[in-house]
C-alpha cells in the first residue's frame, strides 16, 4: 500500500518535471533570403523559428566588435545542432553563428563593413492563438556609400559659419576609451567645410585647430560669446552650425539629436532637415530635434543649430565617432541637410 503510494508519487513528480522541461522555449529553424528593397538595392531577410510566443530578445551592434550585430534570445535553448554556423550572402552579411550562453542564445551576425553602415530592423511575428510558436525576422541592409564629390547646388553663394564644439583647454566630453569631443567635432567640421566650399558656399570656421576661440582657460561664457561673435561680425551669415558629440552619465544612452532655439522657425526647419539626413545615414537612435536654451543658439541672430552627432560616452558610439568612415558619412549627411534647407527657402 505505502509502496504503491510512493511509486505513484514518484511517477507524478517525473511527469511534473517532464512538463517543466518541455516549457523551455527552443530555436527550431533558421532561413534567409535576399530581397529587393528597390531596383538597385537588396536586403537580407532572416527568419528564426521559435516555439515560444512573446519571446524576449535584443538586437544591437556588438559593443566589442563594430563589424557584428549581436542577437540575444533570452531563456531559450538551441534545438537544432545544424544551426551553429550558417554562411549568409557574403555582401550584406557574412555569417550567423548561434551559441548557447547560459540560459540565453546568442547569435552573432558578422558583417564585411562597419555596423554603423548597416540598416537593421527586427520583428517578432507571433502566430495567433496557437502555441505553435513565432518567427523572429531580421532585415539587414547596407547603406550606400555616397560618393565624395557631392553636388549640392543650393548652398552656392551662402555664408555659413561652422563651430566645432570645445577645443584647446576645453576637451569637451571624454569617452571611455579617452577619445575627446573637441577632436571629433573639428574633424567632422573640416569635412563639412570641404564639401560646402567645393559646392560654392562661403564658409567660416570658429576654429581650425585645437585651440580656445577666446583665450586659454577663459570663462565658458566668454568662450561661447567669442564663437557667436564670429557669426555676428561677418556681414551676411546665413546660418550657424555648431557641431558636438553628446555625453551622459549613463553609458548606455545613445543616438543622434539636433537642437535649435525655440522662437526661430527657420532654425527648427534647418534642424529637421539636418537631423533626418543624419538618421538616414547613420541608422542610430533618432532622438529627434528639440528646442534648447543653448548659449550659441540663443545669442546668434541668424538661424542656428547645435548637432549632437552621437554619444561619446557610449562605448560603441565613441568608436564610431572616432572612425573616418563615420565622420565622412555624418559630414555628408549634414551637408545634404543644409542643401535641402536652402532649396526649401
Amino acid at each position: 500500500m505505502s509502496k504503491k503510494i510512493i511509486f505513484l508519487f514518484l511517477s507524478l513528480m517525473f511527469l511534473v518535471q517532464a512538463v517543466c522541461s518541455a516549457s523551455v522555449p527552443t530555436v527550431r529553424d533558421f532561413r534567409y533570403s535576399i530581397l529587393k528593397a528597390s531596383a538597385d538595392e537588396n536586403y537580407l531577410h532572416m527568419e528564426i523559428k521559435l516555439d515560444s510566443v512573446n519571446q524576449k530578445y535584443n538586437l544591437q551592434v556588438n559593443p566589442d566588435n563594430n563589424k557584428q550585430l549581436l542577437l540575444t534570445i533570452f531563456n531559450t535553448r538551441l534545438k537544432n545542432d545544424n544551426l551553429k554556423q550558417i554562411d549568409l550572402d557574403g555582401t550584406i552579411a557574412q555569417q550567423i553563428s548561434f551559441q548557447q550562453k547560459g540560459n540565453d542564445i546568442q547569435a552573432v551576425i558578422s558583417l564585411p563593413y562597419n555596423a554603423g553602415l548597416a540598416d537593421y530592423k527586427s520583428h517578432l511575428l507571433s502566430q495567433e492563438r496557437h502555441l505553435s510558436g513565432s518567427a523572429l525576422t531580421i532585415d539587414v541592409k547596407k547603406m550606400p556609400n555616397k560618393p565624395n564629390n557631392m553636388s549640392l547646388s543650393a548652398v552656392a553663394g551662402h555664408t555659413i559659419v561652422l563651430d566645432p564644439g570645445h577645443g584647446g583647454s576645453d576637451s569637451g566630453a571624454v569617452g571611455p576609451d579617452g577619445i575627446m569631443e573637441k577632436t571629433i567635432t573639428l574633424a567632422v567640421a573640416q569635412k563639412v567645410y570641404n564639401i560646402l566650399v567645393s559646392n560654392g558656399a562661403a564658409v567660416v570656421m570658429t576654429r581650425t585647430t585645437d585651440k580656445d576661440v577666446y583665450a586659454p582657460n577663459d570663462s565658458a561664457a566668454e568662450e561661447l560669446q567669442a564663437r557667436v561673435n564670429v557669426a555676428e561680425f561677418l556681414k551676411n551669415t546665413d546660418i550657424f552650425i555648431s557641431i558636438h558629440a553628446n555625453s551622459f552619465t549613463n553609458p548606455t544612452a545613445n543616438g543622434t539629436e539636433t537642437f535649435y532655439y525655440g522662437p526661430s522657425y527657420q532654425g527648427q526647419q534647418l534642424a529637421s532637415f539636418v537631423q533626418s539626413e543624419m538618421i538616414q545615414a547613420n541608422g542610430l537612435t533618432d532622438r529627434g530635434t528639440s528646442e534648447a536654451n543653448f548659449y550659441v543658439l540663443k545669442h546668434t541672430s541668424m538661424p542656428s543649430i547645435l548637432i549632437e552627432l552621437a554619444f561619446i560616452s557610449n562605448y560603441n558610439e565613441e568608436s564610431l565617432l572616432n572612425s573616418d568612415t563615420f565622420q565622412t558619412l555624418m559630414a555628408q549627411a549634414i551637408c545634404r541637410g543644409i542643401n535641402k534647407y536652402f532649396q526649401a527657402e
Partner: peptide, 24 residues
C-alpha cells in the same frame, strides 16, 4: 485513504506544474 492521498498528490503536482514558469 489511498484515494485521499492520491488526490492530495495530484493537487500538489498541479501546483508545482503551474509554478514552473518559462522564465520569461
Amino acid at each position: 485513504q489511498l484515494r485521499a492521498v492520491l488526490a492530495a498528490l495530484l493537487v500538489i503536482g498541479l501546483l508545482i506544474t503551474a509554478g514552473c514558469g518559462t522564465g520569461q
